[in-house]
């Protein structure tokens, strides 16, 4: 019996967290896992905080997990890592994209985006920090940073042997398949376990 693993992806609307979890859960399903994925997206199309949860194992009941339950948190944005840090197990892992998006309250000058966010996350948790935006930019499109982060996640989950190429091919636009496969392997190679 394989123990259920819990993954959380968090970011800001428009960053591609939902597509990432779609690729992830499809690949896991084809590999024979029971998978449940849950997305929480607010009202607006863009700009709000977005999270998806993916749970997989032999049999998964609840589509969502509680606090202190995630094995890995993948944060597409720094502030979002801190927002959801209480979701991970104390021994859990954080994959942190060193990327900053100011919220509307910050833009309006009503709140400050602290310069201590990265430090706070890395002090509190076992975190791997990377600049997925830069890695994706080097490949040719900063928007592929979501799939770079998927590559990192797969590395830390030790699931590199699954058929990720097919999962990417089946879930992204045909014109973006090559870019995203490149991004995936760049992410896979960007971190060491």
């Amino acid at each position: 019996m394989r123990e259920t693993k819990n993954i959380i992806l968090c970011g800001v609307g428009g960053q591609g967290t939902i597509l990432t979890s779609k690729v992830l859960s499809n690949c896991l399903m084809k590999a024979g896992y029971d998978v449940k994925m849950s997305e929480v997206h607010g009202m607006a199309q863009r700009g709000g905080s977005v999270t998806t949860q993916v749970r997989f194992g032999d049999y998964v009941h609840s589509p969502i997990m509680g606090k202190g339950s995630a094995d890995i948190l993948v944060a597409f944005e720094k502030m979002e890592a801190l927002r959801y840090l209480d979701m991970i197990k104390p021994e859990g892992k954080v994959i942190l994209n060193d990327y900053e998006i100011a919220s509307s309250t910050v833009l309006a000058g009503e709140e400050e985006y602290s310069s201590l966010i990265l430090e706070e996350v890395t002090n509190a948790a076992n975190a791997s920090v990377l600049n997925a935006c830069k890695i994706a930019g080097n490949i040719g499109n900063v928007k592929a940073m979501n799939i770079v982060l998927l590559g990192c996640l797969v590395k830390f989950m030790n699931l590199g042997e699954l058929d990720w190429d097919t999962a990417i091919r089946e879930n992204v636009k045909p014109s973006l398949v090559d870019l995203n496969i490149k991004a995936f392997y760049a992410g896979l190679g960007a971190v060491s376990n």
Partner: peptide, 14 residues
């Protein structure tokens, strides 16, 4: 759960 300074988190309303 982990202990950290949640006070640093800004709101992110839609």
């Amino acid at each position: 759960i982990l202990t950290f300074n949640k006070g640093l988190v800004t709101q992110r309303p839609a």
